[in-house]
Amino acid sequence: MFRRLYDWTMALSASPRAPYALGAVSFAESSFFPIPPDVMLVPMALARPNRAWFYAAICTLTSVVGGLLGYAIGALLYDSVGRWIIQFYGHGDGVEAFRAAYAQYGHWIILLKGVTPIPYKLVTITSGFAGYDLFWFVLLSLITRGARFYLVAGLLRQFGGPIRRILDEHFAAAMIVVLVGIVGGFFAFKYLF
């Protein structure tokens, strides 16, 4: 399944629709979608390394805009939609502790969580629920999401050839590492906060 997605994304990268698809996934991931945009960013940047920075910019901007939707869900719809999304990911018990931590460590929470495998949508929804300052939320989201996506793009631009060969030869092992990272992020959020 993942191999087909990888091959499809590699083929999509030559299409004029590629940036729109990447933006849609990045937007959705920041508020409700479970798959991170890296599953599209990595193959697209490998297929077209000269556009890696452009792809990172798309991911950054659409992720922050999607984060605003997550923030709105937390601020306006937490009791219905927001709580359901948080509970769907198995983190309903940790939200109150996470919300309380915003009073003292809000800046650091957004900065650190935005670059880790911890699902960013949980940060965006909780930020809205906690009433975190919207200006700081947007600014810190731009910094942390930008750092994450530009780091990935930079590594792929610099080492794309060897990375692509490794993915082509050991795709299953690479996907296991990615899945462990995603699942690890969910567990880290659940048990650390």
Rank of each mutant, 00 (worst) to 15 (best):
T60I: 03
T60H: 02
L61S: 01
L61M: 09
S63Q: 09
S63E: 09
V64I: 14
V64N: 12
V64T: 13
G66P: 08
G66Y: 03
G67T: 13
G67K: 12
A72R: 08
A72Q: 12
I73T: 14
L76G: 15
L76C: 13
L76K: 14
L76A: 13
L77V: 01
L77Y: 12
L77W: 14
Y78K: 00
Y78S: 01
D79G: 08
S80K: 00
S80F: 00
V81P: 04
G82F: 03
G82E: 02
R83Y: 04
R83D: 06
R83S: 10
I85D: 05
I86R: 02
Q87V: 02
Q87E: 15
F88T: 11
F88D: 02
G90R: 06
H91W: 00
G92M: 02
G92K: 03
D93S: 14
G94R: 09
V95W: 01
V95F: 04
E96H: 10
A97E: 10
F98W: 05
F98V: 04
F98K: 05
R99D: 12
R99P: 09
Y102T: 07
Y102D: 09
A103W: 11
A103E: 15
A103H: 15
A103I: 11
Q104F: 01
Q104Y: 05
G106C: 08
H107N: 15
H107K: 13
L112T: 03
L112R: 01
K113Q: 14
K113D: 14
K113C: 14
G114E: 11
V115A: 02
T116D: 02
T116Q: 01
P117T: 01
Y120M: 12
Y120W: 15
K121E: 08
K121S: 10
L122Y: 01
L122N: 01
V123E: 07
T124A: 04
I125L: 00
T126N: 08
T126K: 07
T126Y: 06
S127A: 15
S127F: 11
G128W: 13
G128C: 13
F129N: 08
F129W: 13
A130P: 09
A130W: 07
G131D: 10
G131A: 10
G131I: 10
Y132A: 05
D133H: 12
W136T: 10
W136C: 06
L139N: 04
L140R: 07
L140D: 04
S141H: 08
S141M: 07
L142K: 10
I143Q: 07
I143T: 08
I143K: 04
T144G: 05
T144Y: 04
T144I: 01
A147T: 15
A147M: 15
R148G: 11
R148V: 02
L151G: 13
L151Q: 00
L151D: 09
G154D: 12
G154W: 13
L155R: 09
L155V: 15
L156S: 06
L156K: 08
R157H: 14
R157M: 11
Q158E: 12
F159A: 06
F159M: 00
G160M: 08
P162W: 04
I163R: 11
I163M: 15
R165I: 07
R165M: 07
L167W: 09
D168V: 02
H170A: 03
